[in-house]
Design a protein around this nucleic acid. Structure first.
Lengths: 138, 138
DNA sequence: CTGTATCCTTAGGGATACTG
DNA sequence: CAGTATCCCTAAGGATACAG
């Protein structure tokens, strides 16, 4: 059954298409990635990522992910001009999705993927549950 | 290090962004989903999915996924006008990605997701490895 | 530094008609 | 039935300037 009453962003009631409708754009998952990899981040931190997102795009994605409650925004303890973005548990629960992307890419895009990422993938492969737990705790 | 020599579709050498660059569009993963859920599919089968992809879009996505070797296209045994699309092992290896999306959505989009999908997610949750294996074999 | 606002370009995608 | 070819529109995204 297709869901299309009122302004519905969902194409259907399929969990996969619904997830994609929420954060299946070109940037959202990469922002989540940074928070998963590195923990708390500032606007500038995100801007410095290799993919070079534009400030306008970064701005509205952070806003969107905040609304989706995948991350929170709070003040820097000392510098009033800097904000800290942090994953919520809801956002953290996207870690397995990220991890599976990494593992797939490591297997099939190996000649393209950078060495540190490969090591990360191998780490995940070696001891899935254990590594995942350790990673999530830090 | 950013990869941008010649015509490179990859924004960086990050495994996640690279995977997204390959099949992070609005439709590719849903085509994979159908193949994972239901096995071999025809053009018409895909067209009948709830999300109602247009024929033009379906056509070029199937072509793209074929080039990426995520699926194969072969003739129907009896009907010469019908083609059969089948997952390759490379495509099958995207099952875990799909499964993690399903599990996340089941947890956080529960009031929106249809009952059969919830059951599928619960099934995955209950016995991850076992169910996965069983599922992949059929 | 952290955003917005603006402008503009492009890619993605829907609708339709059509061919083999 | 399985596509392909248009046409057109919109959303997504890049560049830039600028404001708090």
């Amino acid at each position: 059954m297709k869901v299309k009453n009122k302004k519905n962003i969902f194409r259907s009631d399929c969990p996969i298409s619904s997830a994609l409708d929420l954060f299946g754009d070109k940037w959202s998952l990469l922002i989540i990635r940074d928070l998963v990899y590195f923990g708390d981040r500032t606007f500038k931190d995100f801007s410095n990522a290799d993919e070079k997102i534009s400030s306008a795009r970064l701005s509205d994605r952070l806003c969107k992910l905040d609304k989706l409650e995948l991350l929170t925004k709070s003040n820097h303890p000392t510098n009033k001009k800097v904000y800290i973005y942090r994953l919520t548990s809801k956002g953290m629960d996207l870690f397995p999705v990220i991890a599976e992307y990494v593992k797939w890419s490591n297997k099939y895009l190996n000649d393209h993927i950078a060495e540190p990422a490969k090591q990360f993938a191998t780490m995940l492969e070696d001891d899935r549950e254990g590594t995942l737990d350790k990673f999530m705790k830090k």
